[in-house]
Design a protein around this nucleic acid. Sequence first.
DNA 1: CCCTAAGTGGAATCCTGAATTCCGGTTACG
DNA 2: CGTAACCGGAATTCAGGATTCCACTTAGGG
Lengths: 202, 202
Amino acid sequence: MGWHVRADARRNLGKIVEAAAEVMAERGVDAPMEAIAKRAGVGVGTLYRRFPDRHALVVAVGDHYIHTMADALDRASAGADAWAAIREFVTWAAEPGRAALATALAEVPQEAIAGSAEFARKRAGWVEGFDALVRRAQADGSMRADVTVEDLIHLLNVFTCHPGRLPEPVASRPVRYLHLMLDGMKAGAATPGAAPSPRDPS
Amino acid sequence: MGWHVRADARRNLGKIVEAAAEVMAERGVDAPMEAIAKRAGVGVGTLYRRFPDRHALVVAVGDHYIHTMADALDRASAGADAWAAIREFVTWAAEPGRAALATALAEVPQEAIAGSAEFARKRAGWVEGFDALVRRAQADGSMRADVTVEDLIHLLNVFTCHPGRLPEPVASRPVRYLHLMLDGMKAGAATPGAAPSPRDPS
DNA sequence: CCCTAAGTGGAATCCTGAATTCCGGTTACG
DNA sequence: CGTAACCGGAATTCAGGATTCCACTTAGGG
C-alpha cells in the first residue's frame, strides 16, 4: 500500500530521462544502455529497475519532449503567415540537440506507441496541429498543394537524425538542407511536367 | 612465375563483385561478408582469398561502377539544357539498385580512396564533370548560385543510401524527395532573407 | 539516534552477430 | 592422369551490449 518513493529515487528518474534524451540524440534510439546510465551518473542496475526495457525508456523520453514540440509549433503558428510559421518551426526543430525529439517521435512509434496510449494520443495531436498549419499554408497559396505533412515530418526526421547516420557535411548543417527543401515546397516551385505524386489518396 | 589463373576463378571474381554491389546496396557498405559470399554463390573462404579485407572489395565495387556513373552523366550532359541534364542524371541515379554506386563512391572514400590512386582519379574526374555541369546550369541562369555540386552529391547519397537507414516512406521514393530538392535549387527558388551560405570559400 | 525498507553501483555472465582462419575435398587443364 | 589451384563452409575468435544479481548504502519514519 502507500509506501514512500524516496526523493533521491525520483530525482534519479529525471536525470535518467534527460540523459537518455541526450545520448539518444547523439547515438540513435538504440544507444547502449550503459552509455545512458553513465551519462546520467547512475549504475546500469538503477536504470534497469526504472525501465524494464528500452521501450519504456523511449516512451518516457518521447513523452517528456512531445510538449516541447507542441509548444514550439503553437508558438510558431501564432502569426497569421502560415508559411512563415512552418519555416520557423522547421528551423527551430533543426537546431542541434533537438534530434532526440524527432527520433523519439518517429523511429520507434510502431511498437512503442502501442505500449502507451497516452503518448500515442499526444503525438497524434501534434501531427494534427502540424497538418492544420500545412493545409492553411496551402489554402492561402503559399505552399504547393502536392506535398503533405508526412513529407515534412519524414524529411525533418531524415535531416535531424543523429550524426553518423548521415554524411558528415549534411549532419552538420541540417538547416541548410531543410531550407532547400522548403524552397522546393513553396507554391510555384513545382516543376511542370514531373511533379511528385499529389496527396496520395491511399 | 607465369602460372595460370584458372578460368573459373576469374569468373568467381566477377560474381563476387556483382554480388557485393547488390548486397551493399541493400545493407550498406558494411554488410556481412558472409551475406555477400552467399549471394555470389561462393564460400566465405573464396571471398577472403580474393579480397584480403572489406576495403579491397569496396574499391573493386566502386571501380566496377564508376564507369556507369560517368557514362550516365555524359549521356545526360549531351543536350544543351544543363538544368535538364542535372535533373535527368539525378533521376537516373535515384533508380532502385543504383544505390550501391553512391554508397561505394561516398561512404568509404577517406581510407579506401587513399588505397587506390586509380579509383581516386576516376572518381575525381566524375566529380569534376558533374561540377562543370552544375556551373553551366548556374551560368545560364537556370540554377541558383548558392548551391554546390557537393550539395547535390551529398543529397544524392542521403536519399539513395540503403533502405533501413532512412524512414521507410522516404527510402521507397527517393526520386520524389530528390525532385523536391531540385525544385528548391532552381533559380529563383531561394528564399530572400535567409539563403543557405553561398559557395563556401573554405 | 537507529533501524529497515528502498535504493544503489557495477562486476559477472550470457548472447548475438560478424570476422577470419583452416583444411580436407574438388576441379581445371597441361 | 597428376597436380597445382581452387573451393566451401565448419570451427574458432572477438567485440559490444543486454541483463542479472547481490553486497553495500541511505533516506527518513518512529
